[in-house]
Design a binder for these strands. Structure first.
Lengths: 200, 200
DNA sequence: CTACCTTTGTGAAGTATTTCACAAGCCACC
DNA sequence: GGTGGCTTGTGAAATACTTCACAAAGGTAG
């Protein structure tokens, strides 16, 4: 989060930013900003603040964004399309090297810059291309199945959009986004605590 | 999260579930399950576990899912399409009453069961339909602008997919999902702590 | 009806996270 | 080169969250 705002400040030509300013931008507190950043090192100058450009570079390094990550998208539906279209991925060094589906009516058809490939080839393609990250945009029923295949093929990280609890071995990183649950959280906020809380 | 698995168990006809079982399904601990549920009341029977069907109803009530929520989608792009297509929303009581865009080439065209409307009409439509929830699926640049208009029209909750920090007055609930940040989290997990952590 | 097995609900203990508060350091100005 | 106004970095205090552990039930079998 800090990185995004620092990049904005950087393109605006701002030289330094105080923890107070960053806190305001990110919706947190100055003390939190300082503690967070101090975990990785001592980047600021007392009396001045943090050097925007330099800190940006540091954070990109810390997050591993200096290299390019190859990503495969599994599931050529609407969510997959939205993700493939999203410029932010490429800007941040994530290159989509393949899109997969098992629907014969989709396989072989062009899809953005890529062509939809058969999910049956997924495992060997991952090994050949050595893509470490997969984005899962398929129905829940197939999710764990596909995950197991991805893990077998040597995937290292999975971003899951299927509303299912999936399990992976400890050496694989997993992050799940569940849009229905997000809306339910809002429903809860509206039902209770009416008018008492803001951002949740 | 508990609700989703309880609904599964319910359709499978299971009568009761122990905190241990729920913990396993949800990837947490039995003590955590009990503490979480006890916050809202005392639903279980000692020696037996929790009554699946009854607890499901309780949770739906607590989350405010017994009523129907009207939702407008702002932005008729790929993300908007993915969301509108998502059956889970309707199943959970979220009814999409309108889709808006400011692109003249999209306005008036059919879009799923709805027709894309002009964003200029957004404010008055919200007031007329009294939709309390908006899903924001538009580019970041316009996000805060549109949010301000939504707030002015009396929106009560916003689910934001634009990768921008937006601010709302305290009586409006806000939840943001940022897909680039999720991937960056995975990049971090892969760069550091190689092979030491699992799900993040 | 009693003994025993199971599982909840919950204070207390243990961790983790956030906030406080202030010494140390940097800059600018005189 | 000293003085004063800022701002960081960081131990310590405060707060929040998770886990432990066990008394208080509920059920069952004999």
């Amino acid at each position: 989060m800090y990185l995004r705002y620092l990049e904005d400040l950087d393109t605006q030509g701002q030289q330094t930013a105080s923890s107070d300013e960053l806190a305001h931008l990110c919706g947190t507190t100055p003390a939190q900003v300082r503690k967070d950043l101090s975990f990785f090192g001592s980047f600021g100058k007392r009396g001045l603040g943090y050097p925007v450009h330099e800190l940006t570079a540091h954070l990109r390094e810390i997050l591993g964004l200096e290299r390019e990550w190859k990503v495969v998208i599994v599931g050529a539906g609407k969510i997959g399309a939205a993700l493939a279209n999203y410029r932010g991925f490429r800007q941040r060094g994530f290159r989509i090297v393949g899109v997969y589906d098992h629907d014969p009516s989709k396989i072989g058809k062009p899809w953005g810059e890529a062509i939809v490939r058969d999910m049956a080839d997924l495992a060997q393609d991952i090994q050949r291309e050595e893509a470490p990250i997969a984005v899962l945009a398929i129905p829940s029923d197939d999710a764990q199945d596909v995950v197991d295949r991805l893990v077998g093929a040597g995937i290292r990280a999975i971003l899951n959009f299927a509303p299912a609890q999936i399990t992976v071995p400890p050496h694989v990183s997993l992050k799940s986004v569940n849009m229905a649950m997000e809306l339910e959280g809002l429903s809860f906020a509206l039902t209770n605590a009416m008018g008492s809380q803001g951002a949740v």
